[in-house]
C-alpha cells in the first residue's frame, strides 16, 4: 500500500464532477479529502491523500489529468523555525484545523503537526517567514 498527498486544481467546468467517486469505484483507492475549495463555475482546489497500491495511484492520477485536473504533489512536511519565530501568533488566526494555537497562559506558540492539513495559510501569513513546507 502506498500513500500519496495530492494537490488538485480543477478547471471551472470540471469542479462538480464526482472525481473522488471514480477514484474509489474505478481504481479502488481510498481518498481522504484534507481540504477542498470548490464552488460552481470557479476554479476549485482539493488537497487529498490517496491510499492504495502504487500502480492504482498512478492510474488514478493519469485519469485525473485526462479529466483536465492539474495534479501536483502536495507538501509532505511542514517546518517551524523557532529561531525566526517571534511568537506574534498571527499564524494561529489563519490555521483553521487548529494545528497552530497559543498556550492559554504563556501565549507561546504550540504546533500540533498531526492536525496540519498542509493548507499553506500560515506559510503566507507568517511575517517572519518562519514556516516552510517541503515536498
Amino acid at each position: 500500500m502506498a500513500r500519496r498527498r495530492l494537490d488538485l486544481t480543477f478547471p471551472p467546468r470540471q469542479a462538480t464532477k464526482p472525481i473522488t467517486y471514480h477514484l474509489v469505484k474505478d481504481f479502488d483507492l481510498t481518498p481522504n479529502i484534507l481540504r477542498a475549495q470548490i464552488q460552481p463555475g470557479q476554479e476549485g482546489r482539493m488537497l487529498v491523500e490517496v491510499v492504495g497500491p502504487r500502480e492504482a495511484i498512478d492510474a488514478g492520477v493519469a485519469f485525473l489529468e485526462k479529466e483536465g485536473v492539474d495534479v501536483h504533489p502536495a507538501a509532505s512536511d511542514i517546518c517551524l523555525d523557532e529561531d525566526e519565530c517571534v511568537t506574534c501568533g498571527l499564524c494561529t488566526a489563519v490555521c483553521k484545523p487548529g494545528a497552530l494555537t497559543l498556550d492559554s497562559e504563556s501565549k507561546a506558540l504550540v504546533f500540533d503537526k498531526d492536525k496540519c492539513v498542509y493548507c499553506e495559510a500560515c506559510v503566507v501569513a507568517c511575517p517572519r517567514r518562519a514556516i516552510t513546507l517541503t515536498f
Binding site: T87, C88, G89, T92, L102, K107
Partner: peptide, 11 residues
Amino acid sequence: VPTGPISSLPT
C-alpha cells in the same frame, strides 16, 4: 469568530 494576535505577548 476565531481571533489571533499580531503583537507578541510573550515578548
